[in-house]
Design a protein around this nucleic acid. Structure first.
Length: 411
RNA sequence: GCGCCUGUCGUCAAGCGGUUAAGACCUCGGAUUGUGGUUCCGAUAUGCAUGGGUUCGAAUCCCAUCAGGCGCCCCA
């Protein structure tokens, strides 16, 4: 009979990898809590409309990557990202009445129907944070600080922060109009993708990888528009303030005018953190400001900033696997005494196993050396004298002591 | 959705049109019989992703499907 396999683009996270995942999750809790953030868990599926209105129905994520299904005449969708869900919860639970800022962090699985490749799956995990209620650039700075410090806490380096400002809807529209005007004469020479982008998302034209397109965008009159600081005075002030904070905080970053981000809700600050040790899917963190999303989803007008990180990508950078051996393994041919001793130790908080099949002594010791740090030898002599021999399986040192003292020897 | 590459035991693999489909690790059993991770024996693919072809003969060549990798698109 054919075996059933994991679905394309999904993966088991196996016991041998679990220490890395616990590490990422514990650090997230530890670091984000330091900044006053609280964890929130929202449902895996939401109304399809939430994502259409939230993420934006011109985006690829909504157009072709969602897992959508019908149930009882409702259209439901597995969340492709968690910002929309968190915003929904923020509105629904009246969190705008809480004292600002409201800082919410989350972790969990997301679903996108994409062609899998290295660093990209159909079910993947993100950790992220959303901060509501602050329009000042201090908040943008603090968000970036949180991201950088979290990555640092994971022991990651060789990362670069890229930053851009998209302006506000008003100045961005002006820029789009100008950009389209200079590019229009060359429209027929552009690649098919770019021709589609021209209407859909002109800002994305700029980072096309096709040579012919790059040549066109390199033309002086187009470069002039691209390099121009199109953003309005308010937006420019906001951006300058953010840069000042980052400079003072010694956070290295580079300005990337081509950094756009694919989700519709961003305005002003956008940023990405990339690793130089990944393949083409090298962004480990993406985020930015989204001042109109809460209002667009029916809430009070509330500014917000957030980011999300891909945990599989982080895990592949952390890499190292930790020792997940059981602490102790009871070696004894008296199963009853063995199970009793093992249970005593578990009550003391020590992880402990013993041989359930009552194999020969040498086999049990061999087994112990494979799965545990210490062997607890419990033979006839030890049982009689209420003692146990504790053997360190790495150093081969051993000591016979009373049962009460045995638990102090594991370290 | 598009382009290129790959698919042999749980894992890493040899194999290049005719072999009993190497080898290593892991796992399991045994020897040494209260001291393991060293050593020594032994077990483990009637099968080469799946389905079709070509051939006297296919893991080896061809086609399709599926899966994986890499790149594009997009994104974490």
């Amino acid at each position: 009979m054919a075996i059933i396999k994991v679905q394309k683009g999904t993966k088991d996270i196996l016991p041998s990898e679990m220490s890395v995942w616990h590490f990422m999750e514990e650090k997230a809790n530890e670091i984000f809590t330091k900044y006053g953030a609280k964890e929130i868990r929202t449902p895996i599926f939401e109304a399809t409309e939430l994502f259409a209105r939230g993420v934006g129905d011109t985006t690829d994520i909504v157009n072709k990557e969602m897992y959508t299904f019908e149930k009882s005449e409702r259209s439901l969708t597995l969340r492709p990202e968690n910002t929309a869900g968190v915003v929904r919860s923020f509105i629904e639970n009246g969190m705008h009445r809480l004292s600002a800022p409201v800082k919410l962090w989350y972790k969990g699985p997301m679903f996108r129907y994409e062609r899998p490749q290295a660093g990209r799956q159909r079910q993947f995990h993100q950790v992220g944070i959303e901060v509501f209620g602050i329009k000042q650039a201090t908040c943008d700075a603090e968000i970036i600080l949180m991201a950088v410090n979290y990555l640092k806490a994971l022991g990651l380096n060789d990362l670069s922060v890229e930053l851009n400002s998209l302006g506000c809807p008003t100045c961005r529209e002006e820029f789009k109009t100008k950009l389209k005007a200079v590019i229009k004469p060359y429209l027929n020479d552009l690649c098919p993708d770019c021709q589609a982008r021209f209407e859909k998302n002109p800002l994305r034209l700029l980072d096309c990888k096709v040579e012919e397109c790059k040549e066109i965008y390199a033309k002086p009159e187009i470069q002039e528009v691209i390099q121009s600081d199109f953003i309005c005075e308010d937006c420019a002030n906001h951006f300058n303030e953010l840069k000042k904070y980052l400079d003072e905080l010694n956070i290295n970053y580079s300005i990337n005018k081509l950094l756009v981000r694919g989700l519709d809700y961003y305005n002003r600050t956008v940023f990405e953190i990339k690793s130089n040790n990944l393949g083409s899917q090298n962004a480990v963190c993406g985020g930015g400001r989204y001042d109109s999303l809460v209002k667009n989803l029916g809430g009070e007008d509330t500014p917000a900033v957030g980011f999300a990180m891909g945990m599989e990508r982080l895990a592949s950078l952390i890499g190292e696997k930790q020792d997940n051996r059981t602490t102790a393994f009871v070696v004894s041919n008296d199963s009853l005494e063995a199970i009793k001793l093992a249970e005593e130790l578990r009550q003391e908080g020590i992880s402990c196993e013993f041989d359930l099949t009552n194999k020969k002594f040498t086999k049990q010791l061999e087994k112990a050396s494979k799965v545990a740090k210490f062997a607890l030898i419990l033979g006839e002599d030890e049982i009689k004298s209420n003692q146990v021999t504790v053997k360190n399986l790495d150093t081969s040192e051993q000591k016979t002591v009373s049962r009460e003292l045995a638990k102090n020897l594991f370290s």
